[in-house]
């Protein structure tokens, strides 16, 4: 038994939240809609001051907050940008988010930032690099982070480790948690031709501390279908079904609905979150 002086780290309740997007910020501050929690991209709040911080402060007073970073580049062979991690640490001290996460991907090479979540060949070398980077981030932040499975469009010639196994090993070696993006599993599965349910079965459920949902687009390249993770539409039926299966396997988890392209009215996003809450409620009833 732990000492009474050492409380459990705060965790998010297993309810639905939404991604905080600029067009909704003032409406959320003014009307305080019932939302389980909110997730912000910390890079958008790395200015020194001004209205964005006033707004995030107001939101933090009303809601649980998670930081979903896009700039750590956990898969970069050149290592982690120490200056960027310091900026994230300072921001986390200021807003005390319940969770901090980023992706199993990279976006920095030769000091250039590419503003996309680029895929890694899943090799032993890459595993060592990502582990070292996650260790460096966690020790600089003084806290654990979650790492999210990316959407994948391309396959490397040499990528011998299956992604769920890679994430599982990463989590065991570094102590990081996993953020499971169910839409990303589905998008990657359709693009690369694997069974998304097999992926779910291979994920260590006890390591999954958050789930993401979003919409994607169907496009064509070279006469072939490809699904693009553009976060620009409602969550599709197949992804809702996969989400239900994930909950059935792992139990209820805090679930976030993301929408980034053609951001709809807040009410549309809240309706998606309500749908996720209904799945979570069903899951709780079945497991209780």
């Amino acid at each position: 038994m732990g000492s009474p002086d050492a409380p459990f780290p705060p965790i998010l309740p297993p309810v639905a939240g939404i991604g905080l997007r600029a067009p909704h910020v003032l409406e959320i501050i003014e009307h305080r809609p019932a939302i389980g929690w909110l997730e912000a991209h910390p890079e958008n709040y790395m200015g020194d001051g001004g209205p964005p911080h006033v707004q995030l402060n107001a939101i933090r007073q009303e809601y649980d907050l998670s930081f979903h970073a896009v700039g750590l580049s956990l898969g970069s062979a050149e290592g982690i940008d120490a200056r960027h991690v310091r900026r994230l640490r300072d921001l986390a001290h200021r807003y005390e988010p319940t969770l901090v996460s980023d992706h199993l991907s990279w976006s920095v090479a030769g000091g250039v930032y590419l503003n996309d979540l680029l895929p890694l060949p899943l090799t032993e070398e890459a595993l060592n690099i990502v582990c070292a980077n996650v260790d460096a981030v966690q020790s600089a932040l003084g806290r654990r982070i979650l790492v999210e499975n990316p959407s994948t469009y391309i396959a490397f010639q040499h990528s011998p480790i299956p992604e769920p196994e890679f994430l599982s090993e990463l989590s065991q070696r570094t102590g990081c948690g996993l953020l499971l993006d169910v839409n990303n599993i589905y998008v990657s599965a359709m693009n690369l031709g694997f069974d998304p349910r097999h992926y779910l079965m291979a994920v260590p459920g006890e390591r999954v501390e958050e789930i993401h949902l979003a919409g994607h687009a169907l496009s064509r390249r070279d006469g072939r279908e490809v699904r693009i993770d553009d976060h620009g539409s409602p969550v599709c039926d197949a992804v809702w079904r996969l989400y239900a299966e994930a909950l059935w396997r792992f139990g209820p988890r805090p679930t976030l609905v993301e929408w980034d392209t053609d951001v709809p009215p807040l009410a549309t996003l809240l309706a998606e979150a309500e749908m996720a809450d209904r799945y979570l409620q069903t899951c709780r009833e079945e497991t209780s």
């Binding site: 590419l114 503003n115 996309d116 680029l118 060949p121 469009y153 391309i154 396959a155 490397f156 010639q157 040499h158 693009n191 690369l192 390249r221 070279d222 072939r224 490809v226 693009i228």
Partner: peptide, 20 residues
């Protein structure tokens, strides 16, 4: 040319160029 990709997935590399 992206010789480290499987030939079948090479056309999809463009998605990353486009995103960026």
């Amino acid at each position: 040319a992206c010789p480290w990709l499987t030939p079948a997935s090479e056309p999809f590399f463009d998605i990353h160029r486009n995103n960026t």
